[in-house]
């Protein structure tokens, strides 16, 4: 195989893997939008908050330590425990459920029947509040996240491709794990929404709020449920991205990577989030590989949006989104 083709193949494979990482973030947006029509601006911050909480719980960090010390003149910092990753993840998932309950009780409940733009603005407020809360609770320093996920080049893939093509491909072990996790997550979400009672209720609310209410489905319960699931998805995304870069406040910016995925895949489709992620991942990486050197590089950020825009022009609802038909 010619050298350039080998390199392009490697770039494409890495693009697919990167796309999966984007999809993990996009999934959270889709879940909430599908069930409630809310574009959740806070989804990136949810991932940050979940990752901060996970590291804090795992390392036995005292939440609000700085504030406690300032008010009471104490010097508390750590509980002195180191929790196993599984326990810490389970506890963080519970925290995210608690957060979903609070969001519903304190924010969403009061905004029933409001226009989508009001709900969107509420999530902007929520994003900044959660970012501040995360800072006060766990501090702004960068934290190493170690839940035992492998990182670095996959030696097997490198040696197999090397023996086949004379060039060993680079695939990150973390990306492989992320792909497996994404497959499991999407399968679980699909099974849940298709075959469970709550899942059917969730779809009913997504289809028609009023009709769902008329058959006795509790809108408030569905909102708690969907925000809990989105919180869990945010936790998964936070783990993957946090393992890569450490847990820090720029983690909330991963939402920027999810937006073109949503534009392309549609705001209401779980498979759309996955396929959209893959297209964006591959598209931006290949563009940067072929065209980047001619125009100075650093094309990925803007090219992803341009690609999404092109799709949007031809399919405004996204590849898998539901076509909006309004009859007058």
């Amino acid at each position: 195989m010619p050298e350039q083709l080998l390199y392009a193949t490697e770039v494409m494979l890495n693009g697919l893997m990167a796309g999966v990482m984007y999809s993990l973030v996009a999934l959270g947006f889709v879940l909430i939008f599908k069930a409630s029509g809310i574009f959740n601006y806070a989804q990136g911050v949810l991932a940050l908050f979940a990752a901060l909480t996970l590291v804090g719980l795992q390392n036995g960090q005292v939440p609000f330590a700085h504030m406690i010390n300032a008010v009471f003149g104490t010097h508390v910092a750590e509980f002195g425990w180191q929790l196993p990753a599984v326990v810490a993840i389970a506890l963080t998932a519970l925290v995210m459920v608690g957060l979903a309950v609070l969001i519903e009780k304190l924010v969403l409940k009061h905004l029933v029947s409001q226009a989508p733009i009001i709900l969107f603005m509420a999530t902007i407020g929520l994003a900044y509040f959660l970012e501040g809360l995360g800072d006060v609770m766990w501090g702004a320093d960068i934290k190493k996240l170690d839940v035992g996920l492998p990182q670095g080049i996959s030696e097997t893939i490198e040696s197999v491709t090397d023996s086949l093509f004379g060039y060993g491909f680079f695939i990150d072990n973390l990306d492989i794990v992320a792909t497996v996790v994404a497959v499991v997550l999407v399968s679980a979400l699909t099974i849940f929404s298709q075959y469970s009672k709550q899942g059917r209720a969730l779809r009913a609310v997504a289809d028609d709020h009023q009709a769902a209410l008329s058959v006795g489905i509790s809108l408030r319960f569905i909102w708690v449920l969907v925000w809990s699931i989105a919180g869990f998805v945010a936790l998964v995304a936070g783990i993957m991205w946090g393992t890569k870069s450490g847990v820090q406040f720029s983690l909330s910016l991963i939402a920027l990577k999810a937006l073109p995925v949503l534009m392309l895949g549609g705001f209401t489709s779980i498979p759309g989030a996955i396929v959209g992620g893959l297209i964006i991942g591959v598209g931006e990486k290949l563009f940067d590989f072929f065209v980047g050197p001619m125009i100075g590089g650093a094309t990925e950020n803007w090219f992803a949006y341009m690609l999404a825009l092109i799709f949007l022009v031809f399919r405004p609802q996204g590849l898998f989104g539901e076509k909006i038909i309004e009859r007058v």
Partner: peptide, 21 residues
């Protein structure tokens, strides 16, 4: 060789694949 990374720099796979090549 100049290799730019856009803000914030959370995703740098392309850049480091280039360095590897």
């Amino acid at each position: 060789t100049e290799i730019p990374v856009d803000h914030p720099g959370q995703e740098q796979k392309s850049q480091w694949l280039q360095i590897r090549r």
